[in-house]
Design a binder for these strands. Sequence first.
DNA 1: ATTGATAATGGAAACCATTTTCAATAAGAA
DNA 2: TTCTTATTGAAAATGGTTTCCATTATCAAT
Lengths: 154, 154
Amino acid sequence: MPGGRMGAGWGGRFRGCGYRMTIPRQIIMKVLSGTDKHLSAEDIYMKAHKTNQDMGLTTVYRTLELLMQMGVVVKFDFGDGRARYELTEGTKSKHHHHLICTSCNRIVEYTDFMDEEMEFLKRAEKGLSKKHKFDIKSHIIQFYGLCDKCKKKK
Amino acid sequence: MPGGRMGAGWGGRFRGCGYRMTIPRQIIMKVLSGTDKHLSAEDIYMKAHKTNQDMGLTTVYRTLELLMQMGVVVKFDFGDGRARYELTEGTKSKHHHHLICTSCNRIVEYTDFMDEEMEFLKRAEKGLSKKHKFDIKSHIIQFYGLCDKCKKKK
DNA sequence: ATTGATAATGGAAACCATTTTCAATAAGAA
DNA sequence: TTCTTATTGAAAATGGTTTCCATTATCAAT
Ligand SMILES: [Mn+2]
Ligand SMILES: [Mn+2]
Ligand SMILES: [Zn+2]
Ligand SMILES: [Zn+2]
């Protein structure tokens, strides 16, 4: 497949949920698909803005809200005052979680212990779904503490 | 121990961290100790305000920030635009996590699977601490999805 | 291809939880 | 009690996110 039609496949996904596929939405999907970072709404806006000058920040927020409802995106709060977003089905990044330094807000991604985690989560999600009648779509695991530097600084 | 001196024990904790014990801080600790709910800063402010008319919302925010640094309180983001706070060493509540409905923001607490979780966490925290040189103080596990009502509504 | 109902957009203004500022006050060591 | 300075409350500022609304674009039906 040629590289030009990125995000084309997302049209069906949007339409399947009763929404329309638009230029801004294509660009936003392209930005999200093309990174392995935790982008804020403004990060996404700035990247998208290079492709389409007319894009508005408001549209980024609206689209992210939509994508969250569709289960395509997860929203994180790392404590720095702005929300971060990641594709759930990342073509680039593997399933991972985060260590967060409560002192300097540094984020460390880790992919260790995913086997043990998977085993634990599989059982937990199954049981919780049934007991609390929840349709679980995603999860977040975060560890808080002091990073290397902040530990020494203290 | 008579019921009047609630939070007196916290004085040493504050002073031990190089801070002073004050009336507002005593009241805030009393409020936090006396609930098993997820209180927002304003929730705490309103409860504290009944005891001490002069208390300011600013002080609540400042004290919570302090308590977080001291590891006494954990801050949650349930997606409703305001942070929630809970004592880590809850005298009332057990260790638990949350199911969050992405549609109506309903929160369900659960204490199931804590044995399996404890086992998984113990191993993960130990390994992660060593590998990433993080001094892990706390963790958050949250499941996102649709609650019973929102599932049917769709 | 054209039409038309209406979903989606962008810019500005509004919103609102949280932070900052600063003069007044209170804690606690000496 | 005195003195240093951490802490406080009120008001103003901040800034990420939402809301409004007139304009535009999508796409199913023609
Ligand atoms: Mn990540
Ligand atoms: Mn809870
Ligand atoms: Zn750090
Ligand atoms: Zn719900």
